[in-house]
């Protein structure tokens, strides 16, 4: 499951789920951005092999992004339609209309 640093960064709102299915840096130093890059490398590799023959990597990533934003817990960050970082509240998150 998640590494402690990653879990802590999510809980602390230093990172957030972007609409394109990748992780974004909300606030945090070089360590946080290096960790985010590492996670995104791994996500891209998963999307690349998962999208084979199904869709473009971006579409697959986008679809997953919708699920990830929907699954964010209260207090975690996610990217709103206008591109800015929102904090997940109690209710449903602001989702891209194209999400399934």
């Amino acid at each position: 499951q998640r590494t402690p640093e990653y879990a802590a960064a999510r809980a602390a709102g230093q990172v957030g789920e972007q609409r394109d299915g990748y992780l974004g840096v909300v606030s945090g130093g070089a360590d946080i951005s290096a960790m985010v890059r590492d996670i995104n490398n791994k996500r891209r590799s998963v999307y690349t092999s998962a999208a084979q023959g199904k869709s473009t990597i971006e579409e697959y990533a986008f679809t997953t992004g919708c699920k990830l934003i929907r699954d964010t817990k209260a207090g975690e960050k996610y990217q709103g339609l206008d591109g800015s970082w929102k904090t997940r509240g109690g209710g449903a998150p602001e989702l891209d209309p194209r999400c399934p």
């Binding site: 499951q1 998640r2 998962a50 869709s55 697959y60 679809t63 997953t64 919708c66 699920k67």
Partner: peptide, 23 residues
């Protein structure tokens, strides 16, 4: 155009579940 997104939702869910470490 292909209407792709809808078809991928389940697949995406499965992928997230299999790699929970990085999602």
């Amino acid at each position: 155009r292909q209407e792709v997104v809808y078809r991928l939702a389940a697949d995406a869910a499965k992928t997230v579940e299999q790699n929970e470490g990085i999602f």
